[in-house]
Simulated assay, not measured.
Amino acid sequence: MAKKGHRPSKAAPSRPRFYGRHAVLAALANPERMVRKLWVTREAMAGLDVPSTLPVTFADAADLARLVPGDAPHQGMVAEVDALEDIWLGDLIAQGEGDRRPLVVLDQVTDPHNVGAILRSAAAFDALGIVTQDRHAPPESGTVARSAAGTLEVVPWVRVVNLARALDEIAEAGFWRIGLSGHADKTLGETLGGERIALVLGAEGEGMRQNTEAHCDQLAKLPISDKVESLNVSNAAAIALYAVATRG
């Protein structure tokens, strides 16, 4: 029987390489994550408890640097992993039934550093999860995992084919969909009530697409001064999540 709810996208299988202590240790600690290989320096391995079935290769720092992009800070650890299993939007919504944890919806935010930073803020403020469109969001990668500082393993990330339809499903579940936009008339604080909140953010520069705005219940802006035109999307997400967490 087909499962009800918005179907997750089916991305092609890939094996990203995670690097850095936070990302690698969090992957090893996640029972839902399959870690296939581990490259590590002997210094970094000291005190590390890894499954006996995991292939471990000792290498020096220079060798590890060849396994990661550019000058990425590997901190003596690189792991090859399987991407996590897809999550259903309906299942994620059901996990938050009865509480007021917010959802974060990203409209074509493609920079992996930004998505990683948003995952970290989502974990810090106990968000229910994040939702992105599959074709206009980065895949799981070492850059995302490093920027997320381990929180890629604990914050549910739903990828959907059609963001507008996903926003409809989110509304049907009782969420008040607030789109952050610099041209909104009201501030975020003025729009927050007691409802379950879904924060919708667009890419830096372009912002949300018109169709995405049309699927929001309310547009709101952050009360920033005119000294800056806008905030980086990850900074805006952190401030918005704080506002939701501290509302009356």
Rank of each mutant, 00 (worst) to 15 (best):
M1D: 04
K4S: 14
G5V: 10
H6S: 10
R7K: 15
K10M: 10
P13R: 15
P16T: 14
R17N: 07
R17V: 12
Y19E: 09
G20P: 08
G20M: 05
H22M: 08
A23Y: 06
A26D: 12
L28A: 05
L28Q: 02
L28K: 05
A29M: 07
R33L: 05
M34K: 14
V35G: 08
R36D: 11
R36Y: 10
L38C: 09
L38H: 03
W39G: 06
V40K: 00
R42N: 06
E43R: 14
G47Q: 12
D49T: 15
V50R: 04
P51R: 09
P51N: 11
L54Y: 00
P55C: 01
P55E: 00
V56Y: 06
F58T: 08
A62E: 15
A62F: 06
D63N: 13
L67N: 04
V68W: 02
G70D: 15
Q75D: 13
V78G: 10
E80S: 10
D86V: 11
I87G: 00
L89C: 04
G90N: 08
I93T: 11
Q95D: 14
G96S: 03
E97I: 09
P102R: 08
L103K: 08
V104H: 06
L106I: 12
D107V: 13
V109A: 13
P112I: 14
P112Y: 10
S121G: 14
D126L: 04
L128N: 05
D134W: 08
D134T: 13
R135L: 14
E140R: 06
S141E: 12
T143M: 15
A145C: 13
R146S: 15
R146P: 02
A149T: 12
G150Y: 06
T151E: 04
V154L: 03
P156N: 13
P156G: 07
W157H: 14
R165K: 11
A166Q: 02
L167G: 05
L167V: 09
I170T: 01
A173I: 06
A173E: 04
G174E: 02
G174M: 01
R177H: 02
G179Q: 04
S181G: 03
G182M: 04
G182D: 00
G182Q: 06
A184S: 01
A184Y: 00
K186N: 11
L188I: 10
G189C: 01
G189S: 07
R196F: 07
G205Y: 03
M208W: 13
R209H: 11
A214P: 05
C216V: 09
L219E: 05
P223W: 00
I224A: 05
S225D: 08
D226W: 03
D226G: 04
K227Y: 06
K227N: 09
K227V: 06
V228D: 01
E229S: 14
N232F: 03
S234W: 03
N235F: 02
A237K: 02
A238K: 00
I239T: 03
A240G: 02
L241A: 00
Y242E: 01
Y242I: 03
V244H: 02
R247E: 10
R247F: 08
